[in-house]
Each structure stands twice: as structure tokens, then as C-alpha cells.
Simulated scan of single mutants.
Amino acid sequence: MRILPIIGFLIIFGSCKEETKELTAQQIVDKTIDNAGGDKYKSAAIQFSFRDIKYSSRRNNGDFEFTRTIVDSLGETRDVLTNNSFERYANGTKLSLADSTVNKYSNSVNSVHYFVQLPYGLNDPAVNKKLVGESKINGKDYYEIQVTFSENGGGTDHEDVYMYWIAKEDFTVDYLAYKFYTGKGGIRFRKAVNPRIINGLRFVDYENYKIEPWKSVEMQTLGELFEANELTFLSEINTEDISVKPIKPKKD
């Protein structure tokens, strides 16, 4: 009969060991996306305003359409990015654009939608994820996920490096940073603020910071530098007038 308590102990010990098994970068990101809305992203129409420009996205079973609408003294300019094309319209007339211009505008439209709808974009095919460590910021424990992009599908800025601090307790992206090389280059560090849930999807605004000089700064040290007030505040990044409407998924 003494063997029964031993067996019970082994079962409990094995369960505890399984629960404390280290998560992979992919598992951490999957949990973070699930926490922010999960499958609701896949079939949704989202509208928002960013810096007085209107944006909309529509995803349905793998197909997507991202738009940007700018209204100024010259009228309305509308950009439309889909899985297969980019088109620009000026007051309803389609414009003929050089390939270099198409790439520039496509990346610009995609970038805004990418940041606003994080963390969903972290599972895009061109994204390479790596768990590089763990840290503590303001007393809270985080996974440090480094993201790079494949040249194929990663856009013209595929050499940029990103870091995401994902809370171990509730799997939210509370901080992110990126090192970019276009223009003069630099590092930006963002703190997520004003989290809210809109029709099942999680959105945040950001406080935006920089550091100079930046070239020798290791991305993993940015949390410590933020706590030590070594970063320079640049701006608030606010997403406004957000609406989310579910779409009935189409069949394959």
C-alpha cells in the first residue's frame, strides 16, 4: 500500500515539472495574440484615425485590404494595399506609379496597420522570433522577444531589429523597441499606455522615446535605461476613433 503515495507524489511532481517547462518564443507570441483577441483578428473590419489620417483594414480568411485616406487642400488621396497589389487614387482617379513609389507607399501604409494591430503581426510569415532573455521593468517580469525579418516578404526595412517585452503574468506587450537604419538611423523605445478592449480586440497608445548616441546601444539594455531615465521623450502616439466589426468568414 505504501507504493500508492509514492505514485501520487511522482504524478504531482511530473505535473509541476510540466507546468514550469520553459516556453518557446512562438508559444509566448501565440499566447499574447490570443490574449489580445486571437482569431477575432482574422475576420474583422477595423477603422481608426492616426495623426488626423483615416485608416481601415479588412481581413477575411487570409485575404486583407489596408487603406489610408488623406484629405487636404488638394482633395482626397486614397491608398489601397491588398495581398497582391497597391493602388493610389487622387479624387477617385487611379494614379500610375513607379515601382519605387509603390514600395514606399506600401511600406508606409503597412507600417501603421502593423503597429496599431500588434501583437497580431508577430505571426506574419516574414517574422523571425527569438526568446533572448528575461528581465524586470518597474518590478514586473518580462520575456524579451527579439524579432527580425526575412528579406523575402520583409519589406525594404527588413534589416531593422525589434524587441518586445511581453509580461510573464498576463502576456501583454507593455514595451517595444526597434533599431532602424533608414535615413540617419536610430533607436525608438515605446511604452504602451491606455489599453482598452474594443469589440474583443485589444488596442494601446504609446509614449515614444529615443536614445543618443544609439549605434552601440544593446536592445536588451533599453528597459534598464528607461528605468534610469536615460531615454529622451519624443512624442505621444495615439490611435483614435477605433471601431471593430466582425466579418462572417468566407469559405476556402
Rank of each mutant, 00 (worst) to 15 (best):
N194K: 07
N123E: 07
G186C: 08
L10R: 04
K31C: 03
Y89D: 05
N229Y: 08
L176K: 15
T24V: 01
K42V: 13
R190T: 01
A90M: 09
Y162Q: 07
N83E: 00
D160V: 03
E144L: 14
K94T: 07
F180V: 06
T221M: 12
K251H: 13
L118T: 13
K210N: 13
L23V: 08
I211P: 01
S85A: 12
D63K: 14
K251W: 05
N229D: 12
T101V: 10
V132S: 01
N61D: 08
R88E: 07
D124H: 04
R190N: 02
K215C: 06
P213N: 02
A167E: 15
Y178P: 00
T148Q: 00
F171W: 06
T101C: 11
D72R: 01
K40G: 05
V193R: 03
G37D: 01
D30P: 09
Q117C: 04
E151T: 10
S216H: 09
P125S: 04
V71N: 10
G186L: 01
T77D: 12
A228S: 04
E151V: 15
M1R: 11
N208C: 11
V109G: 03
I33G: 01
V132P: 02
N35T: 14
F203Y: 12
E159L: 10
K21P: 05
Y120M: 12
S135I: 08
R188H: 10
S235I: 00
Q117L: 12
E159G: 11
L225F: 11
A45D: 09
A228D: 09
Q26M: 08
F48I: 02
A98G: 14
D124N: 07
R188C: 05
S243W: 10
I211W: 00
